[in-house]
């Protein structure tokens, strides 16, 4: 590369690199360091190298239980999201581009509108006098009001809706990329719609489904607004617990260790799933 264009390259990249170094990379290194420090009092800790924080997390069933509840809720919510998003994405992916864009925008709204607004809507639906209880009572499905706020079911209803776009958008893309003539060919050779779906559409949409599942699962793991409000402060998840320990309590060394362990588990999971994805894709495309 000539010298002048090298200078240009540095000029183009410098501002972004500096901002990332200051606001993203340094805080992350500090987080890692802090996890080995010792807690003094709120917001104050002494530097050093101690594994005490990690031992604390790993030896207490309460802390481990929060990891477990978070993983369990995320798993269930991801599964429901996949089941609901697939048929809708399949329908949208086949529409002419104008309608497709319009419906894709509607589906993306929970993401664009932000978690807070969605959660406010859900809260009014789930309140004791809200729509869910009102409808169930008038249909005589229940005899008396049931609590929804503060239950895991309430959190799940909100979670699935909040992260729905992260599943639907990659699915719409990968289902839309399937060549229609492939399906027509299968049908003209006498395959039933069911068989065409299972031998052509489903296998070809697996990459989109996997990327959706990963995005939704990761987003669920770090949920914060939804469990905090729809859980009515009764149900702790990773996100709400980290906030409580970091801001009101101010025990940064412990919270850092708690977060680092969580990241390690997420990383391991991402590693295993990307290995699995490659294996599945090889099976689909090469028949190995």
């Amino acid at each position: 590369m000539e010298r002048k264009s090298k200078k240009n390259l540095v000029l183009l990249l410098a501002p972004a690199t500096i901002i990332y170094l200051i606001v993203f990379i340094s805080p992350f290194i500090l987080l890692l360091a802090q996890s080995f420090w010792t807690f003094q009092s709120s917001y104050v800790s002494t530097p050093g190298f101690s594994l005490e924080n990690y031992k604390n997390v790993l030896s207490d069933p309460y802390y481990l239980g929060i990891y477990w509840r978070t993983a369990r809720l995320s798993f269930v919510s991801t599964l429901i999201t996949l089941i609901l998003a697939y048929p809708l994405a399949r329908l949208i992916s086949r529409l002419p581009s104008g309608k497709k864009g319009f419906l894709t925008t509607l589906v993306a709204l929970p993401m664009i509108g932000g978690a807070m607004i969605q959660t406010m809507g859900w809260m009014s639906v789930m309140m004791p006098y809200g729509a869910i209880n009102g409808i169930l009572l008038s249909l005589n499905i229940i005899d008396s009001k049931i609590p929804i706020l503060g239950t895991e079911a309430g959190i799940l209803i909100g979670l699935v809706q909040s992260f729905f776009p992260l599943m639907a958008l990659p699915l719409i893309t990968s289902l839309g990329a399937i060549d229609v003539t492939l399906e027509d060919a299968a049908k003209s050779l006498g395959a039933t719609p069911m068989k065409t779906f299972f031998t052509i559409v489903l296998p070809l949409s697996i990459p989109g489904a996997i990327s959706g599942v990963l995005l939704v699962f990761m987003a669920n793991l770090t949920m914060y607004v939804t469990p905090s409000i729809l859980g009515a402060n009764k149900i702790q998840t990773f996100g709400t617990f980290v906030y409580q320990q970091a801001v009101p309590v101010g025990n940064w060394p412990f919270t850092s260790a708690y977060a680092i362990l969580f990241l390690l588990m997420m990383g391991a999971l991402a590693f295993v799933s990307s290995w699995l994805t490659k294996k599945i894709q090889r099976q689909i495309y090469l028949g190995e």
Partner: peptide, 25 residues
């Protein structure tokens, strides 16, 4: 570099915020 620039999308924002509160203080 592209991976680094896009990595905040992979790191949960709550963990990023936890690092930031310590760093900015």
């Amino acid at each position: 570099l592209q991976a680094v620039f896009l990595s905040p999308l992979m790191i949960p924002s709550i963990v990023g915020a936890l690092g930031l509160i310590q760093f900015l203080s």
